[in-house]
């Protein structure tokens, strides 16, 4: 084998359904782009703990994590390995409190959310909508 195993940090994000089947999107303070809530897993936390922590930090919401629905791997601009995992989640409550990482939020229909997000995150929304039980 000529190739090395990927060594990556793992970004976990929530396709978070709330009232009226709408999905939560948040706007980054850094560049104004829209994204799904979530972030990188810390060392020594479980997958579920990590995602719940990130969503709570960014939105104040508690979530029920149902299942993973989409994964992707890439390298960032500095060549560091990244692995992304998207989960289908349900919001427990709808009172959003943002952290200073984000400046705005919106609850959108799946098709409107897919349009506003990056291509990868939009694909995750589409998959979540298809795989919903």
């Amino acid at each position: 084998m000529t190739d090395e195993p990927l060594n990556a940090t793992v970004s976990q994000r929530a396709v978070l359904f709330g009232y009226d089947d709408r999905i939560l999107v948040v706007r980054r303070a850094s560049d104004g782009g829209w994204e799904l809530p979530g972030g990188r897993l810390d060392a020594d936390e479980s997958t579920v703990e990590g995602l719940r922590r990130e969503v709570r930090e960014e939105t104040g919401l508690d979530v029920a994590i149902r299942r993973p629905i989409y994964t992707t791997s890439w390298r960032n601009d500095r060549g560091n390995g990244r692995y992304g995992v998207y989960y289908y989640c349900l919001a427990e409550g709808d009172g959003v409190t943002l952290s200073d990482e984000h400046t705005d939020y919106d609850w959108l229909t799946p098709s409107a959310a897919a349009e506003r997000l990056s291509e990868t995150q939009g694909s995750a929304v589409t998959r979540a909508t298809e795989l919903r039980e």
Binding site: P5, N7, A8, T9, L41, A43
Partner: peptide
């Protein structure tokens, strides 16, 4: 952030 990010093989 108090903790460091997990660095993992997949």
């Amino acid at each position: 952030m108090t903790d460091e990010h997990l660095q993992a093989t997949i």
